[in-house]
Design a protein around this nucleic acid. Structure first.
Lengths: 210, 210
DNA sequence: TGCGAAACCGCACACGGTGTATGATAAAGG
DNA sequence: CCTTTATCATACACCGTGTGCGGTTTCGCA
């Protein structure tokens, strides 16, 4: 309960959330732990990992682990948050670079590219059984993207299909093909995956049935 | 290690897999345990459940639990297998009753109905965090359905989209809307859900974008 | 209806993983 | 250089798991 990273310098306090410099030791420790967890997920899957395993791999004392994270799940969440923010940022920049804006499924290509750039990580998340919870974070983020796209595009749903139905439909299909892509080694380029996805979404999957 | 249910009556042995009558006590015990697990999943979620909880709820001694199942997961798997077989059977009968056969997404309506009939169970699976593994069983079964549909319908994929891509796309979208339906209380009737799903699959989700 | 088999029960035990407390040591940072 | 802060090893209590073992109850079958 050493309350690490809570340096109190009342003077230097910036407004609200200060970006105070972090002690090198803290940064090193957390980095090692994150990396250790990741490599262990690839080896044995998340569920089978022990806190002791992580510490051993990271060369960190077990008590130090608990000084930074309350549990194995806490460590996972922390690592996932990085990922989520990075994804958000990439989506944001892709929006500004292509100001047509209303093009549907704008999240698709950036997401495929992001997954390609972090393939080792995503494959770990997909492969392990515990990855389901992790992927759920991504799923919810994508759902937000689609919701705002739908809200921006058209107010009416002429087909009578509930809007949330459409959101889940689109993101569910997307996550499924993304997962398949990663599972099978991500050999196809992101551009082609994006093209396939858009084709099915535009023409409907039923058109491929005969 | 009492090896329950291994009655040895060498005479009465039928060819191969005999459907030997099960001791009433055994049936009662297993039924209680399955039911207890289910109700507990609804209350606290699968992960938080202890073997002791299950036994207490079922009024079964803890040693008896281990005489039937090796672990909590084993009990879950056992219950899930029932579900999977029932789903398979319903799909089979729906195929024969509608011999046109080639109608795409034939799994859709039977699946929605099956979920409606076992709503409490499915909602438990969807809601709990551990449900991901359980839903995966369903997902794989549906993938098999779609694969055989695709194989039966047409040999060529004129669009150039890989067949497995289509399979994952369809089932991913389906599982997503099914999950949403259950999460939100399954108020819409299965027929309407089926109709919505087919509409998006036929016209493409992009058509709902403006 | 009675008898043998088997299923159930409670209890006790060893094992392993978790999370906390503590005091000593090492390394940042100013 | 000196203070602050992070790290470490150790020890400990706690809890859930899975197994072993007699004793009791219930079932199936003759």
């Amino acid at each position: 309960m050493s309350q690490i990273g809570q340096k109190q310098h009342p003077d230097h306090e910036r407004s609200g959330l200060a970006k105070r410099p972090i002690d090198r030791r803290v940064a090193r420790t957390r980095g090692m732990l994150h990396q250790a967890l990741l490599s262990l997920i690839l080896e044995k899957g998340y569920e089978a990992i022990l806190v002791e395993d992580i510490c051993e791999r990271a060369n960190i004392g077990r008590s130090t682990f608990y000084a930074h994270f309350t549990s194995k799940d806490d460590l996972k969440r922390s690592g996932l948050e990085h990922l989520r923010l990075e994804l958000l940022e990439r989506h944001r920049s892709s929006l500004t670079s292509m100001p047509t804006g209303i093009r549907p499924f704008g999240f698709s290509l950036p997401m495929f590219e992001h997954a390609r750039d972090h393939m080792h990580l995503y494959q770990a998340l997909v492969g392990s059984k515990g990855g389901a919870i992790a992927l759920d974070t991504i799923r919810q983020t994508l759902c937000d993207f689609v919701r705002s796209e739908l809200a921006a595009a058209g107010g009416k749903d002429p087909t009578g299909v509930p809007r949330e139905f459409i959101v889940r439909h689109v993101v569910g299909a997307y996550m499924a093909v993304l997962t398949w892509w990663l599972e099978s080694g991500a050999t196809l380029p992101p551009q082609q995956m994006d093209e396939f996805f858009r084709r099915l979404m535009n023409e409907g999957a039923a058109s491929s049935y005969s």
